[in-house]
Amino acid sequence: MSHRRVNILLVEDNHQDVELILRALQKQNLGGKVKVARDGAEALAILFPPGQNGTDLRESLKVIFLDLKLPKVSGLEVLRAIKTDVRTQAIPVVVLTSSPQETDIDECYHLGANSYIVKPLELDDFTQAIAQLGSYWVLLNQTIPQ
């Protein structure tokens, strides 16, 4: 497993959204650096594999795109797990969701989310938003040096 090149962890259960997101990231040449988790449990398994593994991945990650409505373990619980664990709490988390609910926004920021994006409905808006997110968080934003 070469985690070394994984910069983005996309946690999203909707296949169509995954495809649209990946398509948008592709345009920024970031498509190959994405790891996809289909639910919350899978995301946690990737971030915290059994044993001492997973350090490489965690070190190469520059951002986590997190949907809130997920099967098994919800996005809020994943967020809480990431932000309360010393190994992951420094990784920026962008909540990427269809829910414009104020309670969700409120709770996410209090749990430590770095950004909260409501997915635009229009393809152009959506593609542009994802492309901006990718270029900002992966290319522009500076994370803690390894």
Binding site: N14, Q16, D17, L20, L68, K69, T97, S98, S99, P100, Q101, K119, L121, E122, L123, F126
Partner: peptide, 15 residues
């Protein structure tokens, strides 16, 4: 409505 209806709508629109 917000989440589950918008997601497929976005897919239909997008594709």
């Amino acid at each position: 409505v917000a989440h589950d209806l918008r997601a497929p709508l976005r897919a239909i629109g997008g594709f």
